[in-house]
């Protein structure tokens, strides 16, 4: 895939980082305000997709990116399940109830950033998973069309 003109590249350089930060903000504030892992993850994926569209990449680079992002996707779900069954795992060492999805961390003060037990953690892992998954989807489609064009040449 070819990149775009210098104007698009320059603007993207400025905007992509801001979009990425906004996605992080939505993800981390998920337990206090509307948003959360899924919404934040899509925004983060959007910033990556913008970068690839603006700067372009050859097929090899895209395939490398796809392998890495699908790895992160699987890692996100893995961490999510580990956190969800955290109470069961930790109950062998500490005095927790052996319950799946038990919120085993301290709840804290409502309205603070660090509160609501493990819900912010779950939000972060979901955000990671969704961002990686959507980016992988995008890359898969791009790679398919790129291969077709290379065959034509």
């Amino acid at each position: 895939m070819k990149g775009m003109t210098i104007i698009v590249k320059k603007v993207t350089q400025i905007i992509a980082g801001v979009i990425f930060l906004y996605g992080l903000y939505i993800t981390i504030q998920g337990h206090l305000s509307p948003g959360g892992g899924f919404a934040g993850g899509t925004i983060i994926a959007g910033s990556f997709i913008l970068l690839v569209l603006a700067f372009g990449n050859d097929v090899l680079g895209l395939v490398k990116k796809e392998i890495r992002s699908s790895f992160i996707e699987a890692l996100g779900i893995f961490l999510f399940i580990l956190t969800a069954s955290g109470a069961i795992i930790l109950s062998f060492y500490l005095n927790y109830d052996k319950i799946f999805f038990k919120n085993f961390l301290t709840k804290g003060v409502p309205g603070e950033i660090v509160s609501a037990g493990f819900i912010p953690l779950l939000n972060i892992f979901i955000g990671m998973e969704v961002a990686a998954a959507l980016f992988t989807l995008f890359l898969a489609f791009v790679i398919k069309s790129e291969e077709k064009e290379e065959k034509k040449k």
């Binding site: 959507l134 989807l137 398919k144």
Partner: peptide, 24 residues
Amino acid sequence: VLTAIVIGVATTALLLGIAVMIYK
């Protein structure tokens, strides 16, 4: 609805992928 949207994204993506392969 949020969950249903996520499921819908997965289904639509898979359908589009299959459609691209069929076109090929």
